[in-house]
């Protein structure tokens, strides 16, 4: 007899449902996991019809919960089912060592999802760009808003980082799925919003682009390396990305100009007390190969 487990697509919802199913020993092949936010309750959840007596407690390693939290944030629709199968095998199937088995098919799949999610979290920490919108008149705290489009449902997982770092500011990060809001004391979450709810630019973006342009070395063009770490899907929300094409296009000309520049002659040393003192250097290390290490002072 198949049970339909209709849940909101969050780790908390999956965990409480999985705990309930596991207590009744429901086999993974008998559960049909449904994302309630996708189906909008077309399917009413069937009343549970569990044959076995509930197990008192289910214990799983802490590593499993960490893995599950990341996997649940993924968007692949098979994730809840495979995660439950993994849980069932670890908790009831006598395969306690599964978490140390990256070669197992279910573990492998979950690891891939978890890794994709943690990469997305890392990129969110990197690529969120706050825009100053005002100052709180009561306490003088600056207020910032950012717009970001993560690939997975990671707003909750990624937000504690911003809380620790920007605790003395007031900020909101808006995403299509869920928004995070920090008022200086408490982190709260709201439903998703649209790009138009966030400011499009910040007065400092120009200065930031100036820095980005100046720190780029045209003599070492490696566009592929840049794109593998900063995929183009993120570019539309990065203020510096709009000058990338110009930088690439002009790099050849700039390098030619460097190479065509006549070499500068050496200028004599100015008469400076400090420079003069350097000439009376202590004994120089002259051995060509550092086979004999210099002794510590």
């Amino acid at each position: 007899m198949t049970t339909t487990a209709q849940i909101q697509p969050t780790f908390e919802a999956w965990r409480s449902k999985a705990r309930e199913l596991l207590k009744h020993g429901v086999a993974p092949e008998n559960v049909d996991w449904v994302d309630a936010s996708q189906t909008a309750s077309l399917l009413a959840e069937q009343p549970a019809d569990h044959q076995t007596a509930p197990n008192a407690s289910v214990k799983v390693p802490a590593d499993f919960l960490r893995l599950a939290a990341n996997v649940c944030a993924h968007t692949d629709e098979r994730r809840f089912a495979i995660l439950y199968r993994l849980l069932h095998r670890v908790a009831l199937g006598g395969e306690k060592h599964l978490l140390a088995m990256p070669t197992d098919r279910d573990m492998h799949q979950c690891n891939l999802w978890a890794k994709a999610v943690s990469r997305d979290i890392h990129k969110m920490h990197a690529f969120v760009r706050f825009r100053l919108v005002g100052v709180n008149e009561q306490n003088g705290r600056e207020q910032f808003v950012a717009w970001f489009e993560p690939e997975y449902r990671i707003t909750r997982l990624a937000s504690p980082f911003f809380e620790k770092r920007f605790a003395s500011m007031e900020w909101s990060i808006l995403t299509p799925d869920e928004c995070a809001n920090w008022d200086g004391h408490k982190l709260t979450f709201m439903p998703g919003m649209s790009r138009h709810d966030a400011p499009a630019a910040d007065a400092h973006d120009d200065l930031w682009r100036t820095y980005y342009r100046s720190i780029f070395n045209p003599a070492r063009l490696k566009v592929q390396a840049m794109q593998s770490e900063m995929p183009m899907k993120y570019w539309k929300n990065l203020p510096e990305a709009e000058i990338i094409h110009d930088l690439i296009a002009s790099s050849d000309q700039r390098v030619r100009a460097m190479i065509a520049t006549p070499e500068r002659p050496v200028k004599p040393a100015p008469n400076n007390a400090y420079l003069n003192s350097l000439r009376n250097k202590p004994e120089k290390l002259t051995s060509p190969a550092p086979a004999s290490p210099v002794s510590a002072p």
Binding site: A225, M230, E240
Partner: peptide, 18 residues
Amino acid sequence: IGSTGGMGICHSYTPDGR
């Protein structure tokens, strides 16, 4: 303001791959 610890973060990449 600010935090450190653990992994560093690359906030952007320039076309030289750095």
